[in-house]
């Protein structure tokens, strides 16, 4: 009677699940890394072509979807432009002072980064903006832990895995990402973490430190390969953690992670 329930379907399913459990728990990535490297080498050229072509289509679709907002944005931007033009003149003096301060504080000047540029050829298909694939790998001098930036100074993530001709970049918005940062205005130190693709949170800031809405958050250069002084974002709001020991701030990045096409790795 009991044999009726143990069909060949169930036996095959159980065998598949046991093998998968063995693969997941005893050898997560080590054994299949060379195979994954070969797969990525073969798929990279196709991914590059398809990704770049689809970026243009995606841009058109986004444009059509946002037509109604464009007129309002246009008026707002014209007003902002006039205000900014006036500010530019007064900021020239501050720029000179800034260069001098950076030298004194030992910040790495942006012009002195050794950068490797690469095209994004794939991204997380689940839309959680957790990771992207870059068309540069070991052969281009990329290694795990290197910082990845755009626009000459805005941090977007870190190199997490490297293969011969491609690498996986873990974005700041990923839930597994954590980077040491500080408030550029007040010096408050904390850790930036991703929140499942919903944004960035600056955590572990002590109650004694000062955070203000609108403050600029930069990398602190502590405890990792990431140089100091890379822009992360601006504080949007500030809360107290559930245990009331630390402050937490929501940080908004200027970068839309799903729209990345060219990034730079700091060697």
């Amino acid at each position: 009677m009991s044999k009726k329930y143990v069909t060949s379907k169930i036996v095959k399913l159980v065998i598949v699940l046991i093998v998968c459990a063995f693969l997941i728990f005893f050898n997560p990535k080590g054994f299949f890394n060379p195979i994954r490297g070969v797969f990525l080498s073969i798929s990279a050229p196709f991914q590059k072509i398809f990704y770049q072509s689809s970026q243009k289509i995606g841009g058109t679709v986004s444009f059509l979807a946002s037509i109604s907002e464009i007129k309002n944005d246009n008026a707002k931007l014209s007003k902002e432009n006039n205000f900014l033009a006036a500010q530019v003149a007064s900021l020239q003096e501050e720029k000179n002072q800034n260069a001098l301060l950076r030298e004194q504080l030992g910040l790495v000047p942006r012009d002195k980064f050794s950068l490797v540029g690469g095209f994004v050829i794939g991204q997380d298909p689940q839309g959680s903006e957790s990771w992207i694939i870059l068309d540069k790998g070991e052969k281009d001098g990329i290694s795990v832990g290197m910082a990845v930036i755009v626009s000459n100074g805005i941090l977007v993530g870190k190199v997490e895995e490297v293969y011969a001709t491609s690498s996986k970049i873990n974005l700041l918005a990923s839930s597994s990402s954590s980077v040491n940062v500080s408030d550029a205005e007040t010096g408050a130190k904390g850790i930036i973490r991703g929140e499942y693709g919903l944004g960035l949170v600056m955590d572990m800031v002590t109650q004694a430190d000062v955070l203000n809405v609108g403050d600029t958050i930069i990398t602190s250069g502590l405890g990792s390969n990431i140089p100091r002084g890379l822009l992360v974002g601006k504080i949007k709001d500030i809360k107290v953690s559930d245990d009331r020991l630390f402050q937490r701030a929501t940080v908004v990045s200027r970068i839309k992670y799903s729209g990345l096409d060219v990034v730079f790795v700091i060697k």
Binding site: K48, S54, Q123, P125
Partner: peptide, 9 residues
């Protein structure tokens, strides 16, 4: 990986 997640906004 390379197309559909790009096309849909």
């Amino acid at each position: 990986l390379a197309v559909l997640s790009n096309v849909f906004f």
